[in-house]
Simulated scan of single mutants.
Amino acid sequence: MLRAIKRLGRRLWKRWSGYHRRSLAETAMSRLKRMGERLSARDPARQVAEVQIRCAILNTFNALGMPDTITRA
């Protein structure tokens, strides 16, 4: 890994190794964990917004977990 970083540079290595995708997944997971298991808002309108945020985070997980498929013609 250190040789690859030295040869490619840190920016290219991160792109080549998929480091950014892992970092995005870890960030999304920490956001979800910080929200806890229960809704914290008391107002029904804010509860709806909180649920929508949770759904957006889960959709991010799904997008990050999907493999990139390449179809050959």
Results as ranks from 00 to 15, higher is better:
72 R>P: 02
35 M>R: 14
38 R>M: 13
60 T>K: 12
49 A>S: 11
70 I>E: 14
71 T>M: 12
14 K>G: 05
11 R>N: 11
54 R>G: 03
21 R>V: 08
52 Q>L: 09
10 R>V: 12
28 A>G: 02
46 R>S: 12
43 D>Y: 07
37 E>V: 05
11 R>M: 07
35 M>C: 05
48 V>W: 02
71 T>E: 15
64 L>H: 08
33 K>T: 09
13 W>K: 05
61 F>D: 01
29 M>K: 07
72 R>K: 15
64 L>I: 10
26 E>W: 01
61 F>R: 08
38 R>H: 12
57 I>S: 00
25 A>M: 13
29 M>E: 02
45 A>F: 04
28 A>V: 00
5 I>H: 04
3 R>F: 03
31 R>E: 05
19 Y>R: 13
19 Y>H: 08
47 Q>P: 02
39 L>E: 05
46 R>M: 13
18 G>N: 08
28 A>M: 01
37 E>M: 10
6 K>H: 04
65 G>A: 15
25 A>R: 09
5 I>W: 03
23 S>W: 05
27 T>S: 12
24 L>N: 05
20 H>T: 11
18 G>C: 06
37 E>Q: 13
34 R>C: 02
22 R>G: 10
55 C>Q: 07
32 L>I: 09
43 D>I: 12
45 A>D: 13
37 E>D: 13
8 L>D: 06
46 R>H: 11
64 L>D: 10
38 R>S: 14
30 S>G: 05
40 S>E: 12
27 T>D: 09
59 N>F: 01
12 L>K: 14
63 A>D: 08
22 R>S: 09
11 R>L: 10
49 A>K: 14
36 G>F: 01
12 L>S: 09
56 A>Y: 06
16 W>I: 02
16 W>K: 10
50 E>H: 03
32 L>P: 00
26 E>R: 15
53 I>W: 01
12 L>M: 07
24 L>R: 13
64 L>P: 10
18 G>R: 06
5 I>R: 12
56 A>F: 06
35 M>D: 09
27 T>A: 14
39 L>V: 06
71 T>N: 12
13 W>N: 03
14 K>T: 03
6 K>Y: 00
57 I>N: 03
29 M>S: 01
46 R>K: 14
72 R>N: 11
51 V>Q: 08
25 A>E: 08
26 E>N: 10
49 A>R: 15
65 G>C: 11
45 A>L: 15
39 L>G: 05
19 Y>T: 10
9 G>E: 04
70 I>P: 01
69 T>S: 12
14 K>A: 10
39 L>I: 09
50 E>F: 00
19 Y>Q: 12
37 E>L: 13
1 M>N: 10
19 Y>C: 08
58 L>F: 05
25 A>K: 08
38 R>Y: 04
50 E>L: 06
19 Y>W: 07
40 S>M: 10
41 A>C: 14
29 M>H: 00
9 G>C: 05
9 G>S: 05
33 K>A: 13
53 I>Q: 11
21 R>N: 07
47 Q>V: 04
31 R>T: 00
66 M>S: 15
52 Q>H: 07
69 T>L: 15
64 L>W: 07
12 L>V: 09
11 R>P: 00
50 E>S: 06
37 E>A: 14
49 A>N: 04
13 W>V: 02
72 R>F: 11
46 R>P: 01
22 R>P: 01
14 K>Q: 13
12 L>T: 04
19 Y>A: 15
47 Q>E: 09
25 A>D: 07
64 L>Y: 06
36 G>N: 06
14 K>I: 07
